[in-house]
């Protein structure tokens, strides 16, 4: 027996991570130094488990929760009810249109092409302006929402 047990082995023994062999037992029986060192490691590891953990002294919930971004609104999936309602709506509008279609076409037969195109262009311009208005106000509201988040 020329050498002491290494610190690696002593730590592993104290942590129960090392198989003890004959040679180690014999050494430990005869060597005060290694026995003391092993006992010190065992004592140290037990003490580490029980030593009082210092506290942060911060109320993490109160600190963090008000800072969380608002959850995004959950989008309702399109249900079958909505789909039937849409079909019904289309049907209600298209049936009378189908019935009165011939009369409407006759109505425009007498109007000159020039007049018809003026009405059409006018209507398109008005619809365009209205759409722009709607989109702008939507953007404004969205910005306002992001600001509050």
């Amino acid at each position: 027996m020329k050498n002491h047990l290494s610190d690696n082995v002593l730590q592993a023994l104290a942590l129960d991570q090392q198989q003890v062999n004959e040679e180690m037992i014999t050494h430990l029986e005869q060597c005060d130094r290694c026995r003391e060192a092993l006992a010190n490691y065992q004592l140290l590891f037990t003490a580490l488990k029980t030593v009082e953990k210092p506290s942060l002294e911060i109320d993490i919930e109160a600190l963090v929760m008000p800072q969380l971004p608002k959850p995004a609104p959950v989008r309702q999936p399109v249900g079958w009810g909505n789909i039937w309602l849409a079909i019904l709506g289309v049907a209600i509008f298209s049936v009378p249109l189908f019935i009165t279609g011939r009369f409407i076409r006759n109505l425009f037969k007498e109007v000159p092409v020039m007049m018809l195109s003026i009405i059409l262009v006018g209507t398109l311009i008005i619809v365009g302006f209205l759409l722009r208005e709607i989109i702008n106000s939507y953007k404004e509201r969205k910005q306002l929402l992001n600001f509050y988040q």
Binding site: L5, S6, V9, D32
Partner: peptide
């Protein structure tokens, strides 16, 4: 490595830590 490079010497001991003082110092 099972053994230390340090030569074996029976007389050279290690002081024993005491659990009583350990808590405060740890």
């Amino acid at each position: 490595l099972s053994y230390n490079r340090q030569a074996y010497n029976v007389n050279e001991g290690e002081k024993r830590l005491s659990s009583r003082d350990l808590g405060a110092a740890l």
